[in-house]
Design a protein around this nucleic acid. Structure first.
Lengths: 335, 335
DNA sequence: CTGTTAGCGCGTTCAC
DNA sequence: GTGAACGCGCTAACAG
């Protein structure tokens, strides 16, 4: 385990007591210049590195926050993680990442382990932990929940308005003159998926377009699901000129399905995605998508958790601003 | 910090000594059935969770291994991380991820911090740490280096043969009848990039095709670089019928650049990538690419680090097997 | 099988 | 300013 050279060794070499070294290192009390020098020299002579485990035990704080993602293999989560990491570094906290794999049992396990490791706070990105479980496992440490909302008042929730995002996407299509607009939905039991569907329906209604359930196919937010959904849509034979995919990964799948059938985007069909993943600027054609500033949200989450840890009130979230990024996968229908 | 209920509280409630509880929990010594029951009941009555920090301090082992990635936002690293995570879980170790951002100073900092946290072992994924630095920071804990090689004998290196991979890619193109084959290289100072270039040149030579430096443009392993490189290649006016991109991200960029100019893949130009990122099955057209079993390598890394930690010899690496995945971005040239 | 006694390395009283 | 002593929660000898 870590180093073998301890604070005590440093103290002995410097001819002072361990408390003096400790105080010097933490800067809590003034130390005389000559001792400072002696300590400094023996520190790098011995190549001393403080044992964070011991420090954590003694102080009851570890200067780390646990970040639970669901899936390491996902641009979506990665953006959020990156944001949290960025934000934390500025505050001298370190992130330790674990992943819950969308499995509540796994999530609970990881959360317990994080707590046992003495993290000072926890950031949960999405996931399916129920409030009661979260409450039970969060042993008094502050928690920030990203991407969804919890009724618990101990947890600070930070998320986007998926309903609004979906409205923007569909409205864009409507404004381009599309009337037959299909929808590839997300996993049926997920809040954000439901919200996006609701946005789709409401915007259609608002535009005076009748909802046609033959025009929605369920995807699951991953590429293969997008392929399947698109094929189903096409096979049903109901005509449509545009598709709104519940997320970009589904959209990628849909693109491939269309490509296979010789359908050209946006000439034959317009496509809008959701998430604006990094890759969406580089697919063929570049994808029009609803951008959620995930990375920024991650930074906010970091700020919030640090504030909470230090007993301050988390700053009011400024952004949550969604934006439709128009690229080349959508076009106006000739009048 | 974590829970407030301690081992001692449990012991008191159960009417036994702390050591008995400790022994029961760790299973190192037999404990009488009635005490077991008493302990069990008081554990969940109190909702006791062991304090891993204290345990770590006492045992000198934390059952965690530090994993340093370079960039969270990269499918490449994510695959590797996922593999390591998978592998570790089976061994009851937990991964804590940090990222070095391809910056040696950052890497050194993170490594120090990991050591301070008392990780039992470290897995480094790529990165640019020099041997001397690695040696200095790895305070006696075992280390596994993924994706590149170190001369240090304390570190167990696990990587792929990039030269071989490049040869396969180019050979494929040659076999399809291509003679004018362009190359989009990686960052000039990176070992794997050099190896791929070498594979490209050697395979060409072997096929009796003269090397033409006007046919290589330097990318940087990310999409924008691929776009630029492809444009340069095209602007030079030197004809070519195929391109080997140093990695998939560059290939994606190249695809977009061609799309913009109305060049159709593979009708006009064939394209081969390297890495076989998950997305490569879903781009348009699906990309022929050299697959490196990164996830498997990650699992091997996990096995190796655990073996090292437990004083065994790491199993000899079985795979490192590269494979060319032929999809739809390459076609045979008419004879 | 089980309780008692020491630490693990560091922060933090409390005196001087 | 500075040192001595104690404690964070747990495991590991040491005795029974």
């Amino acid at each position: 385990m870590s180093s073998n050279v301890t604070l005590e060794a440093v103290a002995r070499l410097a001819g002072v007591s361990t408390s003096t070294v400790s105080r010097y290192l933490s800067g809590t009390h003034p130390v005389s210049p000559d001792k400072k020098a002696a300590i400094d020299s023996s520190i790098d002579q011995l190549n001393y590195r403080p044992n964070l485990v011991a420090r954590g035990l003694a102080k009851g704080r570890t200067m780390t926050v646990g970040v639970m993602t669901q899936e390491i293999l996902s641009s979506f989560f990665n953006e959020a993680m990156r944001g949290v990491e960025d934000g934390l570094i500025g505050h001298n906290y370190e992130a330790i990442f674990v992943s819950g794999h969308w499995d509540p049992a796994d999530e609970a396990r990881r959360l317990t382990s994080l707590m046992g490791r003495g993290v000072d706070g926890v950031v949960l990105i999405m996931g399916g932990l129920e409030d009661s479980v979260m409450a039970r496992h969060a042993n008094g440490v502050p928690m920030v929940l990203m991407g969804r909302h919890s009724a618990l008042k101990q947890v600070h929730s930070l998320s986007f308005d998926h309903y609004d995002g979906a409205c923007r996407a569909v409205r864009h299509l409507v404004e381009l003159g599309h009337k037959r607009i299909a929808f590839i939905s997300g996993p049926p039991d997920r809040f954000d998926a439901d919200e996006r569907l609701r946005g789709y329906r409401d915007t259609l209604a608002q535009a005076g377009i009748a909802f046609d359930d033959q025009l929605v196919a369920s995807g699951n937010y991953v590429e293969p699901g997008g392929v399947t959904a698109m094929n189903i849509l096409l096979d049903r034979g109901r005509p449509f000129t545009a598709v709104f995919a519940g997320n970009d990964d589904s959209a990628y799948g849909a693109m491939l399905a269309m490509h296979r059938r010789g359908i050209v985007i946006p000439r034959d069909i317009s496509l809008v995605g959701y998430d604006d993943l990094p890759h969406s600027s580089y697919c063929i054609p570049p994808l029009t998508s609803v951008r959620q500033p995930l990375r920024e949200l991650g930074r906010e989450a970091a700020n919030a958790i640090v504030a909470l840890i230090e007993g301050r009130k988390p700053p009011r979230s400024a952004l949550t601003r969604l934006e439709l990024i128009v690229r080349e996968s959508t076009r106006a229908l000739p009048a």
